[in-house]
Nucleic acid binder design. Structure first.
Length: 165
DNA sequence: CCCTGATTCGC
DNA sequence: GCGAATCAGG
């Protein structure tokens, strides 16, 4: 399909409106996003109105802090949602560190990260999941009823104080 | 893996 | 001029 005058106009319009090359290609048909990009360059209009202002990192942090709920609200009422999976016992004498833990081992942190004996749960997680069955139910709590959501606006933070062993 | 635009180069 | 292939980045 050729770049007729009409199609070029359409391209200019869509591009200036901020559509991506693939979006334009899909909308106009008969061309790939590569064709669109190529044409855009040949037309010399590669520069576009900035869709998003470049935020500084410190700005983002400030916004995140301002938006975040207080600590008490972010904590989930873990105990009330626990089902019947028991914590699994000691996994041995080896302490799993950040570098020694495997991909299929539970990454639930145990202890004080600043402390020497800080380690991870290490139970089998499986399926590329981050936690074992027990800790998964602590970390990923279902957001079901509206009333339940009132009590908790965000998922629980994995922050156990004491070792589970 | 999904996506983005940028560039190269044979056609 | 065109655009597929490729690259670099998110």
């Amino acid at each position: 399909m050729a770049w007729t005058e009409e199609r070029v106009e359409e391209l200019k319009k869509l591009w200036s409106e901020g559509h991506s090359a693939s979006q334009i290609a899909a909308r106009m048909g008969g061309v790939t996003r590569n064709a669109v990009i190529g044409k855009v360059h040949r037309l010399g209009l590669s520069g576009r109105a900035a869709p998003a202002k470049p935020k500084t990192v410190t700005t983002e942090v400030r916004e995140a802090v301002a938006t975040a709920a207080p600590e008490r609200e972010r904590r989930a009422p873990v105990r009330s949602v626990l089902r019947d999976l028991p914590p699994i016992g000691d996994f041995g004498s080896d302490r799993l560190t950040v570098s020694s833990i495997g991909t299929d081992q539970c990454k639930w942190p145990i202890g004080d990260p600043a402390s020497e004996d800080f380690h991870f749960c290490g139970q089998s997680a499986g399926g590329g999941k981050p936690y074992c069955a027990y800790h998964a139910q602590l970390a990923f709590q279902p957001s079901t009823s509206r009333s339940a959501r009132k009590e908790r606006t965000a998922p629980a933070l994995p922050r156990p104080i004491r070792a589970v062993s």
